[in-house]
Amino acid sequence: MPLDTSTYNLALLRVDGRRWNELRRINAQIRTQAAADGSSYLEMGHTKVMCVVTGPSEPGPRRGGVVGSAGGAGGGGGQSKDAEVVVNIVIAGFSSVDRKRRGRGDKRTLEMQSTVANALAASLHIHLFPHSQINVSLHVLSQDGSLLAALINAATLACVDAGIPMTDYVAACTAGSTSTYAANDESADPLLDMNHQEEQELPGLTVATMGDSDRVVALVCESRVQISRLEGMLVVGVDGCKQVREILDRVVREKGRRMIDEGTVEKGTGLNDMDVD
């Protein structure tokens, strides 16, 4: 599906009407689910992700492969001195425009699982929970670009809800660049928070940073791009992560305030006020 990106130069507006440095609408909720230790729901534009965290708990019987786990040196069945972060991503068949089913063995999903697990492990104080396991299961309900970033953000929120000690938020977003790699023009503008159409057409990368700092937890680029553009994209991406962090922080604080107002920190309060659409 070729996308006409040439109009960008005319009005400096992107296909969905945003300017280069605008994030899409981010809507997030925490404690959406009563049964889990921590849960969250996150929308970045039309990308919708749900996350459920259970643990830290005693590692159960091992199911599935070892891929997608981080922390713990080798993590041999909870024998390590660090907690093991096990991430499980389910991409719903109905999440994309054309229905596509991905098996559990899909390498792209496995790579994302491993990335999310390692990014979380960098922030969570896993050394406090030896011989245990933190299970993070992520459900992708709808995808429209910036999937990995949404997954990392949702997982961070759910870990906050689960009350697992962590250094800071791991916030992620994507950055791209106008015009494709072939055109060697220096005037290309960086773009913030790419949607699916832009992701198909333009080079881009996903950045995750630790809290307010400029320190990069994860950096994933999957498209061909001139090395000279990297700096611009990275700067915009890191800046976007800070904005995302602010939004995540607001979500957590607001929920906390509401829980205090209600006077009860009873689990399940978030059950009825969740509005998925």
Partner: peptide
Amino acid sequence: TGILPGTNGSARICFADGTEAIVGVK
């Protein structure tokens, strides 16, 4: 119901014990 605009039909149910399911029809 109708929680996912990208599907032909969708629904979400939460039981009081906290179990939750989402179904999408395409």
